[in-house]
Design a protein around this nucleic acid. Structure first.
Lengths: 229, 229
DNA sequence: GCTAGCAATATTTAATTCATAATTATGTTT
DNA sequence: AAACATAATTATGAATTAAATATTGCTAGC
């Protein structure tokens, strides 16, 4: 079985299992792999045109990321995330982003904070234009930027790990209008607090904001469930 | 090559690569595998009497835990942790434990808090007995208990991930006397705040405490380095 | 004497094969 | 007819083998 041609990127050699892992992540996010469904190794191998070794290595990685659960001698499953899990996840994320805001207020340069303000303004523009899609994309960037401004790489690592696990939840839900207005105000307050170098305040604002976002998403999921029933 | 006999635990089947991963973790913690040193696959396989497949699967897991770094076609290395990394790690841990304390103050039962107080008392006994080793072991338990009391499994997951990466630092350094006295006081203050259900206060105390602990360890490492030079 | 290119060696990656455990189905017995 | 036991099938776990890539050492040319 000849495998499809892979380009060798000159800068950074890619590993097959890394590609496979990334592929699986998107499959999980986009629910091509349903939640809780078993992962048939040979079936997936045939689909991706690879052998079992790189697939199994990728599964191990996804397992330690929490996206895949493996039971010995019974195979891999897409981790079923309950609403309780999602709620817990947002609690942790709020804790992490609070810390990030506090650190950012201390360590970010004036230029970085100014750029952050600009990014936030851009997002507000999309809010005024009532473009939820563009707003959503920028919103992700804003939160990511706060993490980056903290200058803490360990924080960045763990944040991306956890936020990756909320992707499916966020993907399947768009923002509620009621939360939207409030959200924009909170973001502006965050910018002000950061510019004033008030870390505690910035942390408080972002903490509450992320908690609210999580609650909103959970509410929407419950409504969807009721609507489906 | 016949492999050595492995017992099959009736309750929970173990997977070879899990055992290997755990083995490697302790090897890294105890510096049997030196920081930054290359991991020779065939050599390790011979040492552990396994084939390369489970070893490679274990390495993938350790990589996503951050203990191992893999460069494509160049092999695996024990991740070299700079002091900056360790400092960042403690910052994140303080953020996580602050959150845990806040949640614990809200959600823990009276009985759980009472048991926590008892655990803390036990630790203080070892402090009075000036038994650093026993104190150290109990101290780890206390911090772990706060995480457990938060009732947040995601928090527990990520905390154990990060605290695992500080094991080497903590292992190689014992507490300084100056920090010790202060530390005990802070722990008592934490217990009081939790019993009073004052989450904010408990969070503040634990946050500051972990930061100080990290600073102390970093100080000691620098002194050790100077002493060695 | 030094650098560049080539060859040889060693090491890693991935596919294949073999073994073992779990599940399912079938047959028998109560 | 239902339930249990056993056999057959299927899928996972691990070892081996083959292929690809990097590194090192040597030789030739400048």
């Amino acid at each position: 079985m000849n495998q499809s041609v892979r380009l060798t990127h000159s800068v950074r050699r890619r590993l097959l299992h890394e590609d496979v892992a990334e592929h699986l992540r998107t499959m999980i996010t986009e629910e091509t792999l349903a939640e809780g469904s078993r992962v048939d190794e040979v079936e997936l191998c045939a689909l991706l045109d690879i052998s079992r070794t790189p697939l199994r290595e990728a599964l191990k990685v996804l397992q330690s990321e929490g996206l895949i659960s493996i039971e010995p001698h019974k195979g891999a499953r897409v981790t079923a995330m309950s609403e309780a899990d999602l709620g817990e996840l947002f609690d942790v994320l709020s804790g992490l982003e609070r810390l990030a805001a506090e650190l950012a207020a201390q360590r970010a340069s004036d230029e970085e904070l100014e750029a952050f303000r600009a990014l936030n303004d851009e997002m507000e523009t999309q809010y005024r234009a009532r473009d939820p899609r563009a707003y959503f994309a920028l919103n992700l960037q804003v939160h990511q930027r706060v993490i980056d401004l903290s200058g803490n790489r360990q924080l960045k690592r763990v944040h991306s790990l956890l936020s990756g696990r909320t992707r499916r939840g966020r993907y399947s839900s768009t923002l509620s209008d009621a939360h939207w207005d409030e959200s924009v105000q909170e973001h502006n307050a965050l910018v002000q607090a950061l510019l004033a170098r008030d870390g505690k305040q910035a942390g408080r604002i972002l903490f509450d904001h992320v908690i609210k976002t999580g609650d909103t998403i959970l509410d929407m999921m419950q409504h969807q469930k009721i609507a489906q029933a």
